[in-house]
Amino acid sequence: MTDVAYIDRPNRPLYVYAIFYLAFLYIPVMFLPLFSFNDNIYITFPLKGFTIQWYVAMFKDQPMWAALNNSLRVGCVSSAIATLLGLFVAKAVTRYRIPGVKPIIFVIMLPMVVPLIIMGVALLILVTRLGFNLSLYTITMAHVLISVPFAMATLISRFEGFDPSMEEASSDLGAGPWSTFWRVTLPMVAPGVLASFLLCFTISFDDFIMAFFLGGTDPTLPIFIWGQLRFPFRLPGVLALGSLILIISFVVVFISLWLRRWGVEDTQSGI
């Protein structure tokens, strides 16, 4: 029966467990799309019938479009900045011998573990002390902060997958630092840059806590949804919107994680 090593023999109970685990991860969120097509204002079994009225209503909802617009703008700007910063850090830590680089990385990684409420509160205090108004800009700033660790992690793994002698060869052939960056470094880490951008974008797009503390009068999409949750008659609309967001963010994150690894093995085997 076995063409595999003793250690690697299949383990059926574990396999069943793994399937259950994935079900536990995915089934709860599956209820959102399920009920979003249910012709009932109350979210409850039994299902009453198929409808797309919640989606139609959602598409006519002007504030929703405004919030979506805000979220897209904040997401694009913050993930572009975070990716750029992550790119600098990744290049620095993988290419140069820097004294004390470990504590520096630790500090940059902190937003990944420190409770978001702490950073939200601290930023709120800073912003008000400086006399700034809360706005989409302050949210963007906060999103850069919480995205940088993810951008850095994504890009470092990409940089580690490519040989520094490529950049040396470029400068050896006469290219200055900028030229080398555009002609060699960027093309080679491009999948990582895209992966980082998409990941940061979903982080910003999904963030509620930072936007909650640092948002002004313009809501982002999660803030908008939060507002809707207070009204029971609005819930089916949230289901419709949420289903769309979930599907889109699943796809985007999947692409991002796939890109992050894609091509790394490829270049290594190519060398």
Partner: peptide
């Protein structure tokens, strides 16, 4: 690995909302 990581990056708020739907008084 990707299949297991994806949910983490999908909307936190919506995942909590999903549990509200499941565990609610008239929930799933």
């Amino acid at each position: 690995i990707i299949l297991m990581t994806v949910p983490f990056f999908s909307s936190y708020l919506l995942r909590i909302f999903a549990w509200k739907v499941i565990l609610g008084y008239n929930g799933v």
